[in-house]
Simulated scan of single mutants.
Amino acid sequence: MNFASDNIVGASRPVLDALVAANEGAEGAYGTDRATKAAIERLGALFERDCAIQLVATGTAANALALSALVPPYGAALCHVEAHVMEDECGAPEFFAGGMKLLGLPGAGGKIAPRTLADYLAALPRHEKQMPPRALTLSQATEYGLVYTPSEIAALCEVAHEAGLKVHMDGARFANALVSLNVTPAEMTWKLGIDVLTFGATKNGCLAAEAVIFFDPALAEAMPYLRKRSGHTLSKGRLLGAQLEGYLGNDHWLDNARHANAMAARLAEGVAALPGARLAVPREANEVFPVLPRETVERLRAAGAVFHPWSERSLPEGERIAPHEMLVRLVASFATTEAQIEAFLQAAKG
């Protein structure tokens, strides 16, 4: 009954099979292998565009390097105040960008509203004493499991571009958001104005594989050098390419995401029906954020259930957590089973 995250499970079988196949024989190093070339070609076709694509092993590296390619050392990147890049990457974006600053904006459910962004930009002083914003980064899905709609993304990109900012999407759970919206990869990114995407795969079936996708190749000029200097240009790059080949083949990545979302929907339905429980935000992808009585939390932990308490800073207006309650996060993965969910619900009921 481990619902701590979707990165607690290993790789899916097609990914492992692709890795084993790529392990045979000799191949070019540093990303010149057939698997990496094939994965990059597949990603380009998937997004229906000529892109500049770099593969890395971790989401932190992908986000940090993407932002460092967009923001100079004297600049700033805007994000939600509880975004992963702000709260959970140990200052990596600032470090790799040589001193640029992350500035957090508020928003219920981890979302930045277009009006919030516009008002913030309009109020900024224009002086050399202040670091000028050069990028906006959006988490899709957000830290509260919500999904930016196409209209929300388009509106945010319009505001950002009018102010001279580039827009980066942290797609750690890109696939989960995509199948939730039932749109194509292009329809959730560059067609709405996204300039750079961190295409996450590790949380949805890969062992360790992410892609940084520049929809305007001109923006990627520095990226190969940044990746090498950061130590993320793998000598055996085929291990990254092979993972993505197995992940993307036969729409396996979408099947994984649909399963995780479906399991989260089942979990949300069951948890919401528990005595004294409610959902703090709607379930839109593969994460569930219930408010539980503390006695239910204690009962679950005593039964061996694993999950995390969650921040209350960005709850929707009107939602308050009482002293006898706790906001928690439950995450379903491609490997979650109905039996695990039923065991969790039974433990919650005692």
Score class of each variant (00 low, 15 high):
residue 120 Y to C: 02
residue 138 L to K: 05
residue 93 P to C: 11
residue 168 H to T: 09
residue 92 A to L: 03
residue 113 A to Q: 13
residue 143 E to W: 02
residue 190 W to Y: 13
residue 147 V to P: 01
residue 126 R to E: 10
residue 121 L to N: 07
residue 134 R to D: 10
residue 89 E to S: 10
residue 192 L to M: 11
residue 168 H to G: 07
residue 133 P to L: 09
residue 153 I to G: 03
residue 104 G to I: 02
residue 142 T to D: 08
residue 91 G to M: 10
residue 119 D to H: 12
residue 164 G to M: 02
residue 135 A to M: 08
residue 143 E to M: 12
residue 81 V to Y: 13
residue 167 V to P: 05
residue 121 L to H: 07
residue 177 A to W: 00
residue 175 A to V: 12
residue 94 E to H: 12
residue 177 A to S: 15
residue 154 A to F: 07
residue 150 P to T: 02
residue 186 A to I: 06
residue 158 E to W: 04
residue 124 L to Q: 12
residue 119 D to T: 08
residue 128 E to Q: 11
residue 129 K to G: 12
residue 83 A to N: 10
residue 121 L to Q: 08
residue 106 P to F: 02
residue 157 C to P: 08
residue 124 L to S: 01
residue 124 L to C: 03
residue 167 V to W: 03
residue 153 I to L: 15
residue 124 L to Y: 03
residue 163 A to L: 01
residue 185 P to S: 04
residue 99 G to E: 04
residue 132 P to N: 04
residue 181 L to N: 08
residue 152 E to I: 06
residue 141 A to Q: 00
residue 105 L to V: 01
residue 91 G to R: 04
residue 162 E to C: 06
residue 104 G to A: 05
residue 179 V to W: 02
residue 183 V to P: 00
residue 99 G to P: 04
residue 141 A to Y: 00
residue 101 K to Y: 06
residue 153 I to Y: 02
residue 93 P to H: 10
residue 114 P to S: 12
residue 83 A to L: 08
residue 98 G to S: 01
residue 100 M to L: 09
residue 109 G to V: 06
residue 131 M to P: 12
residue 128 E to Y: 03
residue 96 F to E: 03
residue 142 T to H: 09
residue 157 C to A: 14
residue 163 A to S: 08
residue 137 T to C: 11
residue 138 L to E: 10
residue 125 P to C: 11
residue 90 C to M: 12
residue 116 T to F: 10
residue 117 L to D: 09
residue 120 Y to D: 01
residue 132 P to L: 04
residue 159 V to P: 05
residue 121 L to Y: 05
residue 137 T to D: 10
